[in-house]
Design a protein around this nucleic acid. Sequence first.
DNA 1: AGAAGGAACAACTGGTGGTTGTGAAAGTAG
DNA 2: CTACTTTCACAACCACCAGTTGTTCCTTCT
Lengths: 309, 309
Amino acid sequence: MDVEALRTFLAVTETGQFQAAADELGISQQAVSKRIAALERHVEATLLVRTFRGSRLSVDGQVFLPHAKKVLAAIEQAEHAVRPGSRPLRVDVLNRRISPAQAVYRFYRSHPGTDLDAVTLSKENAAQAAQAVLEGTVDASFRALPADQVPAGVSAERLLDAPLELLVGPGHALADAPWISPSDLAGHRIWIPGIREGTEWAAFYQALTDAFGLSIDALGPNFGDEALMDALADSASLATLVGSGDRYLWPQNHDLRRIPLHDPTPVYPHVLLFRSGDQHPVLTALRDHLRTAGPRIPHDVWAPDWAGF
Amino acid sequence: MDVEALRTFLAVTETGQFQAAADELGISQQAVSKRIAALERHVEATLLVRTFRGSRLSVDGQVFLPHAKKVLAAIEQAEHAVRPGSRPLRVDVLNRRISPAQAVYRFYRSHPGTDLDAVTLSKENAAQAAQAVLEGTVDASFRALPADQVPAGVSAERLLDAPLELLVGPGHALADAPWISPSDLAGHRIWIPGIREGTEWAAFYQALTDAFGLSIDALGPNFGDEALMDALADSASLATLVGSGDRYLWPQNHDLRRIPLHDPTPVYPHVLLFRSGDQHPVLTALRDHLRTAGPRIPHDVWAPDWAGF
DNA sequence: AGAAGGAACAACTGGTGGTTGTGAAAGTAG
DNA sequence: CTACTTTCACAACCACCAGTTGTTCCTTCT
């Protein structure tokens, strides 16, 4: 299936004859003839009925035409998506399962037709993400970056506080609590695998640990969410922390419980990084959306000191 | 934008390296390299990050990947739509504005995912349409064909009776009538342009004329619906007949009126032609749908004798 | 340091898509 | 009826590009 042949087919349907299509495309009538013949050979159907006055669509051609247009539109979109310059807003959401991705998705759904792409940078830490924003690789990135570490040229706005919840199996001591305080967790074993030293996540959990005297086991390899869920389901002592907006697709039969944390409510402060002065309308709309439509946060929240306000 | 390059790009993202993609596609690693390089040159973006272990998606690549998949899916669909054999059901609806097209569209909307194409055969008369059904050019066709003229091998089922309505301008004598009887129209001028001798439409209006003593002016060239609407809007004596389900997109400011006909209600009998014994599931579903979900028809309907039952 | 794996570059070649030239079919004008 | 026009298809030719093989470069692992 040759794309140029599709364009040629479209030109013929619009002009009604091969010669006119050829003029439009800047090639010879014979070339048009060849392209159409090749296309018809490829789809094994006659698309155009040749008459002495030009060409009409056959029945197969009628059916094929909208599909051809759709293909060309999809190609146009694909090229547009990565075209330097006027391309869709590109937001790094860290990970498709956690709340920034959900929030961006909700924004996208409530603003139909918005040109927006959610990506996940493979960068490990916030400083590298800020660099990517500065370079224009992405237009915005959700991170947890202390205000004094934001490089020049990049703006940071704390737009999304994700309350933490305890995730435990049905046999856990706290499994039936309606809610708990962070200080209740002192002495319990909390396991958050796959956190590497030097990342923003590590810094956040370190601050949380210090603030409430918790013992978070942040080491050890990450065998994937599946393995973590399996371990939680079977254990009476193991627990982990997740954001309240996160979407973990664990098997239903695990019967895991989410226990909200209050008094105070620890929140993970997602800060949106973007180039200072970036006037991209979708970026502005996204920031407005998050400021107004964000989840309601309780009064007594806790966040690391370095998160600002 | 070369489609083969897109396929190659996809193969590389799936396998993670050029050599594996090359094996999968049955070409050399160097050819893969060239194709990817050409694609990247074309979109002016780096799609893959080359590492010592193979290739990863770049940020642009991440954004581009779903678009590439969409293009290939659209191509797949386009080829499927005209592939001899297992192709979507193809229904000839005569004209996109009138009730069969509307009914097929409603069916399509209420049966998501149904593979269905609506086309308009350029054949003038019902006999040619029946021939097209027999040959398999289309799978079904809405026509008004007397039962005794249905050729062998083709089945006919009267599935859609479209009640007629009078369409008049605001200055017409009958403009404010809530409804009228066909016999009330005797003496009025009714103009239905563009009906050619020998077509099924001509036969229907001839029967209608004979039954109620009307004078239908079915001659004269058809300057398009626009011209007809314009003429109606300005005239105090001119009227035309339309099906109650038809969608004419006339300008709103014409202020045309639709007057239902009753006592009896003349209906245009749309008969569905299809190959006898055609077991296509979508065809069966469409027939079931029309039989059950069709518009409620008044008791005292009139249709030409030859329409059957 | 050497081996191994992966991608890019270089040189060559065959096929495909373009060109011009010409022919066939069908309608129109005289 | 014949000549002319219009439109598309076929034939021959040509140039370029997508493919090939051979090789280099780079990184990592032993």
